[in-house]
Design a protein around this nucleic acid. Sequence first.
DNA 1: TAGTGGTCTAGACCACCGA
DNA 2: CGGTGGTCTAGACCACTAG
Lengths: 240, 240
Amino acid sequence: MADLVYQRVISALQQQINQGKFADLKLPNERVLAEEFNVSRSSVKKALNSLIQRGMIFQKQGAGTFINPLYLKNRPMYNISGDNVGVTDMYQKDGQHPDIQVLGFKVLPAKPEIQEALFLEPGEFVYEIQRLRAFDDQPFMIEDGFVPVKLVPDLTEKMIAGSLYNYLQESRNIFVTRSFLTISADVSNKQDQKLLKLKPVEPVGVMEGIFFTDRGTPIEFSHMRLHYKFMRYNTFTALN
Amino acid sequence: MADLVYQRVISALQQQINQGKFADLKLPNERVLAEEFNVSRSSVKKALNSLIQRGMIFQKQGAGTFINPLYLKNRPMYNISGDNVGVTDMYQKDGQHPDIQVLGFKVLPAKPEIQEALFLEPGEFVYEIQRLRAFDDQPFMIEDGFVPVKLVPDLTEKMIAGSLYNYLQESRNIFVTRSFLTISADVSNKQDQKLLKLKPVEPVGVMEGIFFTDRGTPIEFSHMRLHYKFMRYNTFTALN
DNA sequence: TAGTGGTCTAGACCACCGA
DNA sequence: CGGTGGTCTAGACCACTAG
């Protein structure tokens, strides 16, 4: 895992930042970091770039590398940003994983929409996995996911009652590290209201999209409806 | 603008992709591209990386570089992804810019929350800019933005009735190219319902965050409430 | 003007995919 | 096995910021 040079640098910097080592919010310059870690400046740049993507730091040409003060504060209860590991840690609350209730689990031929999203041939089968996630007694997400059978032929109901991605990671060495999501909002329907404990006027957040493994293979198409108070998506966008 | 090597490569590839040059969705390999464009492989990698960030393409080790078929389809009416230029083009519909109605425009001392978000000293002044954006007769966004006076001392009401970012770009050579946003949903309030023509049960999408210039300077803190049907945020996330 | 990030090159070796 | 992306290095020069 950490046998890559730039990964080592990422981890080290992340730790140092979280420990508050850089009180003035300024990191050493790239050349110094390269020497400290005994790596090339390119590798330092690659590592810093990763932290920039996450919104942890930002750079200013001619001035230096700085910690984003907002990053340290903006840690919502249930967020999606994947601090370090993978999408595994998408939904967390103080490091605690949510409870999962399985609402439905079956195998069916992929509908055209799903076929396309997951790059499947007509007639290929997918699991449909319907789950409800909750923290303590507050449900916050209804999830309707589709996973190609051929990618995980041995999936069982027990496995999906836990974290599917954790299973893939630990038992199969498949890491889910990319996603392509569309985020929107919607009026809640009867089912939403019942499952998420919502009043009729209260809306849901909707997230829909595809998750990819670190090898670029699409592994899940998912449609998620979230309690509006618990949807909080942070993005950091750098164009160009 | 396009005097950078990797920018040249980005533009060229983007054009070729949109023109459908790669019918099989597969791009030439990195070494070939490097030769074609007469640049180093590193520069090709940097350009490809940019396209990956935008979700246009993805790579598979040992196999090649491929166009994301979803990218070509997922072009919502009002989206936020900034294809190429800057945040300028955030809200577009068939290349048409929205109508803007100015609801309020004044100068006031920055509140603590705003101070922090924009890295201001206590007592510094900000413009508060309240606007309503619409396409044709359908309003879709209420915007409450704060911009440091010292960054744009000569701002007038006329300028904000158009695109502020366009003005900054064309007249001041300031490019707004980064954002740090939090996306959520909320029940609509009376004002939302009136301005956005919503029924009481219909929700709003909420986007709040900071925009940065290409120099890393925070230039606007913005709170946006959107008609739920017109909020569609696409993200492509690659962890690590 | 010195410090710092931005860009760019040339080349080496590794890891993975598919035929 | 050949093709392809992934990682990594060493070094050069440019562009911007700040004192």
